[in-house]
Design a binder for these strands. Structure first.
Lengths: 171, 171
DNA sequence: GACCGTTTGTTCAACTTTCAAGAAGCCGTA
DNA sequence: TACGGCTTCTTGAAAGTTGAACAAACGGTC
């Protein structure tokens, strides 16, 4: 950074232009509407929130349907703490189980049970349809491409990358 | 709908293509990263979650800095229940107060106090900077335009519009 | 005026998320 | 082997969210 960070206030920032404000509002509006919509759809049809559903999907795609907790948390972009609670809940449903990791006694593997797989199989079609109706069926192919690129750029800037990335003098 | 709704399963849906899956993952990834980022930024610099900050902003822009609860909930796209809890919390902070609505004895107005306004004034620059750094400074002007249009289309399809909109035969 | 369906805002209980703390195991070094 | 720093996962309490149920007030109709 070549200017002081603008953490808690201080000098004036560049405010958003009218256009930018409109886009920002549209972004907030659309993303929250979609998230609410999918959360409700899955709560209704699969009995769990969107993020839990995502965990089952991840597990279903992993070799032998199992993953280390930390890895799963990283892929799902949630904290280990949150994952612990989530897996505890999914375990109560009988959709996921935990087992000790053979190679690291600290570790746990979460794995998808057959019951969990069935839930997924049953609710996946409805979910895909919901995503399609809300997003892909409404956008032109060009727009889908644009959206992908924009999201890629956004993520790039937010990646919780190397914590020392801001401290080149320590390298 | 000309085909049966695909609510809880049943016939095969059209799955997402590989490209669509990539875009969908990128979307999920980027939007959650950004939301987490801003939530933390505001929790740290303003002492409240993003959505609460949004409520203060709305109030600050309303005439006489006050709004009916239902209207505020609608604008912020949250339930009245959630708003009740949120305002109770903001009231404890002294940033918002409630008053009876003069024209409707059921109603309540929430209004922004001077203290609330100060918090906003103090934390707005840091917030705008965070939004800028994460989004607008990374996208080309064309991309900003594309994003706005895409979000507009998305919201259009998700708008909780007239509840009878799906029932033309009742009109 | 009495009725009835609707709107408004709150409350409760169940659930989810966050944050800080902590127990346990890993690994490099002496 | 013992030590110290790090990683892994869990826990508990506080905070936030959800959905259903509720009392109060509104507003149109008889």
């Amino acid at each position: 950074m070549d200017t002081a960070p603008n953490g808690g206030g201080g000098e004036q920032p560049r405010w958003l232009s009218d256009d930018e404000q409109r886009v920002w509002r549209a972004y907030r509006h659309a993303t929250t509407l979609l998230e609410d919509h999918l959360d409700r759809q899955l709560q209704r049809d699969a009995g769990m929130p969107h993020i839990y559903y995502g965990l089952l999907v991840q597990l279903s795609q992993a070799p032998r349907r199992r993953m280390r907790m930390t890895e799963l948390a990283k892929d799902a972009k949630i904290t280990r703490s949150r994952l612990s609670h989530a897996v505890a809940r999914l375990e109560k449903n009988g959709w996921v189980l935990r087992e000790d990791c053979p190679s690291d006694k600290r570790g746990q593997n979460a794995y998808l049970t057959d019951a969990g797989y069935e839930v997924l199989k049953r609710s996946a079609p409805g979910h895909v349809t919901a995503v399609r109706q809300a997003l892909f069926d409404r956008l032109s192919p060009e727009q889908v491409g644009q959206l992908g690129e924009i999201m890629r750029v956004m993520a790039e800037g937010l990646q919780p990358s190397d914590p020392d990335a801001d401290l080149p003098w320590l390298r």
